[in-house]
Simulated scan of single mutants.
Amino acid sequence: MLQQSVDPRHAINDEPLQLSVVIPTKNEAGNVEPLLERLGVALAGIEWEAIFVDDSSTDGTPELLTRIAQSDRRVRLIRRIGRRGLSSAVVEGALASTTPIVAVIDADLQHDEKVLPDLYRAIADKGHELAIGTRYAANGSTGEWAEDRLKISRFATALASPIMKTRLSDPMSGFFAVRRDILLEAAPRLSTVGYKILLDLVASHPRPLKVAEVGYTFGTRQHGESKLDEMVALEYLELLLDKAIGRFVPVKLVQFGAIGMLGVGVHLTLLYMAMNMVGAPFATSQALAVIGAMTFNFALNNKFTYRDQQLKGFAWVGGLFSFYLVCSLGAVANVGIGSLVYEQFHGWWIAGIAGAIVGSVWNYVASSWLTWTKR
């Protein structure tokens, strides 16, 4: 009788899993199978599993992973609906693991999977708590990066230096392995903002970690599209801000306030144009300026501050009118509090500042609840 050959990647044994490889995906259908093939070769001799965390891919990635996972028990899939972001995806995947060591690798084949065994052994055999694949240590390289991108990366690394408890040559790396208990210790403090989960980890852990660094050459994407856009830079700055002041002031409140200050400029500009260029009466000009400034503030907050809950289509229109309502009530609160403070202290500037602060906080809290509430 002929014996059916068994693909060693699919073989089932009783050995405990030693390593979970967490792989965030967003439209990476063309890279999934090549990556699994490479992991099977690189991690031979290590009992491993791959945990894919998919953020609502539309190119068939989750369907492909579902088919693969049905025949390969080492492949798991977490599908996220209504949630987004590489950092939060990594955390969710890591928390779903039970292995003593968790590794993180991108799905786009730009990280050199042949380095994974070195990262794993640095922790399992040599007692390190964290092992990172670095582009800037010995034997490391950024590959085909243009000089401009290299300068931006180095500048971002310099910005991160003040918040890191553990010194790293490449805190922007998304390619690393960590003891699972170390990640669990940091988990309650993680910001999970944006793409830089390694930086978040070393900034959030209460103490410096024992680190090993392994150089690798950053590869070139073969399939799919890069996720790098203007939002990546914004989310990076948001992460830095959260680590610096997030214990005292919500970062979204800072963003909301900054957009509010821009809105003051928009208000004054529209007021000037309506009165001096159109010749409208002050009351009419003021009303147009108020509506214009509120619309401006809503649009920017929807695009940036609340991009993870961004309203589109008819929801955008409904959100705009709810924002009008919130800000109108905020204006009443502004005037009321300002008047009370003025009666007590007779200082117009103190009263003005007090009213503005109360109005701004009201607008932030109320719009978070009414306009951008999670549905």
Rank of each mutant, 00 (worst) to 15 (best):
A293F: 02
A293I: 04
M294Q: 11
T295P: 12
F296Y: 14
F296C: 07
N297G: 05
F298H: 07
F298R: 06
F298Y: 15
F298M: 04
F298W: 03
A299Q: 08
L300I: 10
L300H: 04
L300C: 07
N301D: 08
N301V: 03
N301P: 04
N302R: 05
N302T: 07
N302I: 05
K303E: 11
F304H: 11
T305P: 01
Y306N: 06
Y306T: 07
R307V: 00
D308G: 01
Q309W: 10
Q309Y: 11
K312F: 03
K312Q: 09
K312P: 01
G313M: 02
A315L: 05
A315P: 00
W316M: 06
V317D: 02
G318V: 13
G318Y: 12
G319N: 09
G319L: 04
L320M: 14
S322W: 03
S322G: 01
F323P: 00
F323A: 03
Y324C: 01
Y324K: 02
L325F: 12
L325G: 08
V326N: 00
V326W: 01
V326Q: 02
V326P: 02
V326E: 02
V326A: 04
L329W: 04
L329K: 00
G330S: 05
G330A: 06
A333D: 00
A333I: 11
N334T: 04
N334Y: 01
N334V: 00
N334M: 03
V335A: 05
G336A: 04
I337Y: 03
I337R: 03
G338V: 06
G338I: 03
S339D: 08
S339Q: 06
L340N: 09
Y342G: 03
Y342P: 12
Y342Q: 08
Y342N: 12
E343R: 13
E343V: 09
E343K: 13
E343S: 13
Q344D: 12
Q344I: 08
H346V: 14
H346C: 12
H346P: 15
G347T: 08
G347P: 00
G347Q: 13
G347V: 05
W348D: 15
W348A: 15
W348S: 15
W349P: 02
W349G: 06
W349Y: 14
W349N: 11
I350L: 14
G352V: 02
G352P: 07
I353Q: 11
A354F: 13
A354G: 13
G355L: 05
G355Y: 06
G355R: 10
G355M: 04
A356D: 04
I357S: 10
I357G: 09
G359N: 00
S360H: 09
S360D: 09
V361A: 12
W362L: 07
W362Q: 04
W362M: 02
W362Y: 09
W362P: 06
W362N: 03
N363P: 10
N363R: 09
N363F: 10
Y364I: 12
Y364A: 11
Y364F: 15
A366Q: 07
S367R: 13
S367N: 13
S367K: 12
S368C: 05
W369L: 15
L370P: 02
T371H: 10
T371C: 13
W372D: 12
